[in-house]
């Protein structure tokens, strides 16, 4: 490019005139001048590669190795970890539990969250305060929530058991987290309680932009409360509920901390979901290859869920 080249499209003539001739600038200056955009994008691109692409690729690579956690190198075993996985009853049990956990917890979060959002959409005294308080479980750190719930569930000095015994509903305290029959549902309850405010916030925001004249028109046409709810409210919030269902399913399917902190996967594996099985294989049994194979399968399941969701969404939009 010569000094007499036409100015670049989009540069101001005054700015161009003030710039020193290119031949007089240093090599670094010229490099910066020509590639500044790329250089500024590099940190983001590197971050993406280092924090997302590399761990994912490394995890997939590790799933083909037999690797003790203390060994820096592993032995290539091909698909052996996957063969072990699919023939292992524990894996199928955990897959079933993970699906049940995600399905039930998300379903209840949506039902409860939508119901609460509908209530909070109605005018009443102190509504702003209640709207703020509803967010409380969602804002609390998970570890604090778990400690509180462990105390509430405690069989010796837990409030829940104390109330049940005092009110005569049960004769003796119930070991909520120690019995295979009740532990799963006790954990689901905490999962629902912690995350239903997320649904409340999103649904409430959507409810506030539904045009009121739709309801008035329906009323004039003689539609009752149930018909108005199904035909207008539910129809209007359907898309939002679908997005919530997708996001919450991904989150709950991958959720580790609630179950791990409450029960550690027990008792008798009654809460051993896939993330906890990954942890047990990788850091309990030191089998990084098998742990990675489970994680890869989880990743594929979630990709499949997302694909189905987007296909469904596209169909709806068409």
């Amino acid at each position: 490019m010569s000094q007499h080249a036409p100015p670049a499209v989009g540069t101001h003539p005054a700015e161009d005139a003030a710039r020193p001739p290119i031949g007089s600038r240093s090599l670094l200056g010229r490099l910066l001048d020509q590639h500044l955009g790329v250089i500024l994008l590099l940190p983001s691109a590197l971050t993406f590669l280092v924090l997302l692409v590399f761990p994912l690729g490394y995890g997939i690579y590790t799933s083909f190795l037999q690797r003790h956690v203390l060994d820096p190198e592993g032995v290539w075993v091909g698909l052996a970890n996957y063969a072990w996985l699919f023939s292992n009853a524990e894996f199928w049990h955990s897959l079933w539990l993970s699906s049940l956990w995600a399905g039930v917890a998300v379903g209840l979060q949506i039902i409860l969250g939508t119901a609460v959002a509908l209530i909070l959409h109605q005018p009443f005294k102190g509504r702003s305060l209640v709207r703020g308080l509803v967010l409380f479980p969602y804002m609390m750190p998970v570890v604090s929530v778990i400690l509180v719930w462990m105390l509430l569930y405690n069989a010796l000095y837990g409030v829940l058991n104390w109330l049940l015994v005092q009110s005569g509903i049960v004769d003796a305290p119930i070991a909520w987290l120690s019995q295979p029959g009740s532990a799963f549902w006790a954990v689901v309850y905490v999962g629902v309680w912690k995350y239903f405010p997320f649904v409340v916030v999103i649904v409430l925001a959507r409810l506030q932009v539904i045009p009121q004249d739709l309801y008035e028109a329906a009323r004039i046409d003689g539609a009752g409360a149930i018909a108005r709810f199904i035909d207008i409210t539910l129809h209007q919030i359907k898309d939002v509920l679908l997005v919530i269902a997708l996001l919450r399913t991904i989150f709950m399917f991958n959720n580790f901390e609630i179950i791990f902190l409450l029960t550690g996967g027990g008792p008798l594996r009654s809460t051993m979901t896939l993330p906890i099985l990954v942890y047990e294989q990788a850091f309990g049994l030191y089998e990084m290859g098998r742990g990675s194979a489970i994680a890869v399968v989880m990743f594929l399941i979630l990709i499949a869920v997302m694909t189905i969701y987007f296909a469904f969404l596209r169909k709806e939009q068409d």
């Binding site: 069989a155 010796l156 003796a172 305290p173 119930i174 070991a175 120690s178 027990g266 008792p267």
Partner: peptide, 8 residues
């Protein structure tokens, strides 16, 4: 003869 929640 132990507390009910010994499972944890």
């Amino acid at each position: 003869f132990s507390p009910p929640d010994i499972g944890q």
